[in-house]
């Protein structure tokens, strides 16, 4: 019934709609997209570099490069959990591919992440770091695509479940906070004791953060992590779409 062109049009309009709603009443507008993670990084820097005195060179740069992809993950998943509910008035009246709602949420947060690349480059410049690696040409789209699929799959799960159990969004936000400390964002993976390392492998964001850090700071694509992350992304999409398909027919009757 819907063509690819329709899907594209709907996604574009949904993204435009969310941007408008998000920034309509704010004075600083898009600055918030990078402002929040920057403030967050600043606080973490003070706590971990100045107070706890973590032994990591260039800690500011190290943090920034981990926090922006993390923010994409955390914001997109939290916002996905509420996207179907906040669009209830549309879902109840019009039959359309509802999975485009979490998809557009994830894409909006990806745009925010892409804007943050500028900030990352500014930080590389301030730190007299190498400013461009050729591997970025394929590394950026490749890792972005994997992270996009990973988040979209989880987004489908949390958005569908939250319609039936409103507790889902609370659980999601607690899980995200927990996962933040269990992902090597504020500390490097090699600081993690050997005994804990296997558990870190179970966290799909470990590989993603490692991938971004190596790409931005050293210009490498860590192919092994890429493979592992791609498997996680595929599983996430598979699980997410299976659950979504099972539940979507009942969305309108319980919203």
């Amino acid at each position: 019934m819907y063509s690819v062109k329709n899907y594209l049009d709907i996604t574009i309009v949904l993204i435009a709609k969310d941007f408008k709603i998000k920034y309509k009443n704010t004075k600083l507008g898009y600055v918030w997209a990078v402002g929040y993670p920057l403030v967050f990084a600043g606080i973490l820097y003070i706590a971990f570099k100045n107070i706890i005195r973590i032994k990591v060179d260039n800690y500011g740069l190290f943090l920034i490069v981990g926090i922006f992809p993390w923010q994409w993950f955390a914001n997109a998943i939290y916002l996905s959990s509420i996207t179907l509910i906040s669009n209830a008035s549309i879902i109840k009246k019009i039959m359309f591919p509802k999975s485009l709602l979490p998809l557009s949420t994830v894409l909006i947060e990806m745009v925010h992440f892409a804007i943050s690349w500028i900030v990352i480059i500014v930080f590389l410049f301030i730190n007299d770091h190498h400013l461009f690696y050729f591997s970025w040409v394929y590394g950026l789209p490749l890792i972005s695509a994997i992270q996009l699929v990973l988040i979209f799959g989880i987004g489908l799960v949390v958005s569908s479940l939250n319609i039936f159990f409103r507790d889902t969004e609370r659980i999601v936000s607690i899980m995200i906070t927990m996962l933040f400390y269990l992902t090597p964002v504020i500390y490097p993976l090699n600081m993690v004791p050997e005994a804990f390392k296997p558990y870190f492998l179970l966290n799909p964001m470990t590989g993603i953060v490692e991938l971004w850090r190596a790409l931005f700071l050293e210009g490498f694509v860590l192919w092994r992590w890429l493979g592992i992350s791609a498997v996680y992304a595929a599983l996430s999409l598979l699980g997410g779409s299976m659950l979504y398909r099972r539940l979507k027919g009942r969305f309108a009757e319980v919203l």
């Binding site: 819907y2 408008k20 309509k24 549309i90 109840k92 009246k93 019009i94």
Partner: peptide, 22 residues
């Protein structure tokens, strides 16, 4: 009153509803 997004303008709602209808 159904199928509108309260924060969007009339024009924006027209576009949203139109594309959702395919």
């Amino acid at each position: 009153g159904g199928g509108f997004h309260p924060d969007l303008t009339g024009r924006e709602n027209i576009l949203l509803k139109g594309v959702l209808l395919g």
